[in-house]
Amino acid sequence: MSTAFDILLNGVALGSVYALVALGFVIIFKASGVMNFAHGSLLLLGGYLTAVLHERLGFYAALALAVLATALVAGAVDLILLRRLDPHATHVLTILTIGVDIALMTDLTRRIGGDLLSLGDPWGGSVSTFGGSTVPHTRIASIVVSLLVIGAVFAAFRFTAWGLSLRAAAEDREAAALMGIRLHRIRTLAWCLAGALAALAAVFLVAFPAPGLERTTGEIALKAFPAAILGGMTSPPGALLGSLLIGVTEALVAGYEAELSALGGGFGDVAPYAVMLLVLLARPNGLLGEKEAIRV
């Protein structure tokens, strides 16, 4: 019984971290129609900055600085590279993010090399026991922090002028511009927010059950891709739901690998994508995605 609980808790914790990443994908996609392939390297950048700064500044100050710096870099990508190009050519912009990813990733890989960096988080390897199950404190922290941050982002969507503008821009870019919404500023802010979320996610992706930050950490972010897609790329609550679904699926498949051996070893790698395909077969626009109305 406690095994099932452990697996479920793992899945939810994993899902909550994926949600931070997936939310970043969705915010950028909503604001600019661009699928940001540089998200993994932004996440790695945030984690790397926390890792190198924490010994001098302490964990919280280092994290704050890393979140800020990553937000600025993400904003700069939009400001310097994407803004100059035709905003309607979203496929060109998307491909450009792959270039940004390669450049950032190459430099970070060179700096990190073969090292395993600790982020110096205050939870360390501490655990609590609840009725026979041990729960690492990092897990609890990741769920709590993700809930708070995601709640704040949702509130910002709902109640701030920026959120309203973003939703309007996502709905119809031209109409929003005609209504006096400054699309450029909305977009750059969206990129900044996504960068900040990625830097935060890095902390929980490499904290205790994982041993630390390494050069491949950015690749883990790509696991949030199916989460964002299956939630429907334009829906923040969809991204949250999709992330939890992917996190729990991954944990269940890894936890019950023996029982699932009929499907072949290593099914855990493809399970998130299998779930994504199944969901998209039933709901082509994702769980909570908007139906696109195209008039001909």
């Binding site: 697996i7 890894a254 936890g255 690998e257 855990g268």
Partner: peptide, 9 residues
């Protein structure tokens, strides 16, 4: 890099 699920299993 996080083997929680494997260890639990």
């Amino acid at each position: 890099t996080d083997l929680s699920a494997q260890v639990t299993a």
